[in-house]
Amino acid sequence: MAGQDAAAFPPAARPGWVGRLRRSESATGWMLVSPGAILIGIFGLLPVLMALKLSFQKSDLLTPETPWVGTRNYRQLADDPRFAEAIQHTIVYTALFVPGTMLVGLLVAAALNRSVRFISVYRTAAYITMAVSTISEGIIFLWLTDKDYGLVNATLNVVGISSQPFLASTSQALYVIVAMTIWGWTGFAVIVYLAALQGVPVELHEAAAIDGARPFTRFRTITLPLLSPASLFLMVWLTINALQLFDEVYLTTRGGPLHATTVIVYYLWDQAFVQFNAGYAAAMAYALFVVIVIFTALQFWLSRKFVHYS
């Protein structure tokens, strides 16, 4: 491989030089690559192996003794009711958050996809949630949904609905977190969909309009299929992020009330850095990893049927 590659580089004119050139090219290559490769090796690759080892050990992160426990951590995972609960909350959250964000993003992007005055101001206002940190977002929504003084309850009262406990309620807290994270991701989803919408050729719509297709039919039969690569990207990206939800849960509910918002990563963090069961947490992290890989593969597999690349 290296010989053929080296020959592809122009200065290698005479055959006798090829060997020397190849060596010097390799030396240069490795010199340039090594800072990045070493850093990612230490903080990206090595930890993957260490985590695997840790998942078969008992560790409290502090004492140097980390006895082997075989597959105990994984077996414990299978019978832990709180882990099962965390999986359930994560699935409910993901199932609502991903389509919710895509729908809001699509609607807002569609409304913003036109040339009217001040459109760049409207667009900036829609994008801006991307710059808001998850912690700021959590504090804002904690206040908006406050059960006594919140703006949301005030609005509900105006239309005749009584005040709701929201984050203080075991049955509502998870949905409030869904709503706040949809808001937080709207800017991102709008950017993706708006870029895709701008790639939809106007001529197709005009031709269909002449043939008598109504706006909604044109949207469904022309725009949506052309948006499918963007939709696939958003679905995969949002799912990966949804399965890793942590910040908003930590800030607003600490997993409560009564574990109602304990999602996988919150439980994992709690086990590793509060209860100091690092081996058990590592096993959990590996389980999460496998789930993410399966989900992603599944989504790409499904996409073969539905995604249309022009």
Binding site: M1, A2, D5, A6, A8, F9, R22, E25, S26, A27, T28, G29, W30, L32, V33, G36, A37, I40, F43, G44, L45, L46, P47, V48, M50, A51, L54, L61, I240, L243, Q244, V265, L268, A272, A278, A281, A282, A285, Y286, L288, F289, I292, V293, T296
Partner: peptide
Amino acid sequence: VRFLGRKALFMALMATLMVPFQVTMIPVF
């Protein structure tokens, strides 16, 4: 640059993109 082991190294580094932070955070700690 066409250096020896380029493809393998590139694949190894890019593989870390798929690993969620939660897997590596305890060892990185």
